[in-house]
């Protein structure tokens, strides 16, 4: 599954951030992603050329005139941020994370909704349970920290699961570590349990 996701061309900021996080969380993924980027670089280096307009160089010079090389910024220490991939840390560096709390489960949007896509951080406290639900359209969930389990298995850091309409599941955060994950979704979440209607109203 990882290979499929990493080699699918990205076409939106959400898919780009998700792919970069996936590449980062596991050394295997990272090296596979490096290999893919090297292939892209190889073709760029050997690409045909298309003539540039005459004024482009001056435009570039103008735009860079008063800019100098910017040193890397050291972020403020935040215990949660330090557990996230560099891609997310740098994306969130100057932003407030607006967590919405649903009891022991916290959800924060990472990018504004674009087309039908959502990118969210999900923080499941140790032992907490997300009520039974399915996903309209696909959800790709990447475990960034800790682990969780559901009716289908146990998932540790660096693993990715793709869920669709026919996966009715009840994720539970690991009793010791809880779980932080990145959810990339193309549709609404649909709760199916006792309080399903109410939860659907709150969550979507």
């Amino acid at each position: 599954m990882t290979f499929e996701i990493l080699s699918t061309p990205v076409n939106s900021p959400a898919s780009l951030i998700f792919q970069q996080c996936l590449a980062e969380v596991d050394p295997e993924n990272r090296s596979l992603n490096s290999a893919m980027n090297e292939v892209g670089g190889y073709f760029l280096e050997n690409a045909e050329t298309s003539p540039l307009s005459n004024e482009l160089w001056n435009k570039v010079l103008n735009q860079t005139k008063n800019k100098t090389s910017v040193p890397q910024i050291n972020e403020k220490h935040d215990p949660l941020l330090s557990q996230l991939p560099l891609t997310l840390r740098s994306h969130l560096r100057n932003k407030n994370i607006n967590w919405k709390s649903f009891k022991d489960v916290k959800v924060a949007s990472i990018l504004p909704k674009y087309n039908n896509e959502k990118l969210e951080l999900i923080h499941v406290m140790p032992g907490a349970k997300i009520p039974q639900h399915t996903h309209e359209g696909n959800e790709s969930f990447l475990v960034l920290h800790g682990s969780y389990s559901d009716e289908y298995g146990d998932y540790k850091q660096g693993s990715v699961q793709v869920r669709s309409d026919d996966h009715n599941h009840t994720p539970v955060g690991d009793a010791k570590t809880g779980c932080i994950g990145l959810a990339y979704t193309h549709g609404k979440i649909k709760f199916s349990g006792k309080f399903g209607k109410l939860l659907n109203l709150i969550a979507n």
Binding site: S34, N37, E38, G40, G41, Y42, F43, L44, E45, T64, K67, T68, S69, V70, P71, Q72
Partner: peptide, 19 residues
């Protein structure tokens, strides 16, 4: 121009970084 110091020659070739 502004982020050249992010370039790390052990991680990627220049064409890969630019790509």
């Amino acid at each position: 121009w502004t982020k050249a110091d992010y370039y790390d020659p052990s991680v990627a070739s220049p064409s890969t970084w630019i790509y």
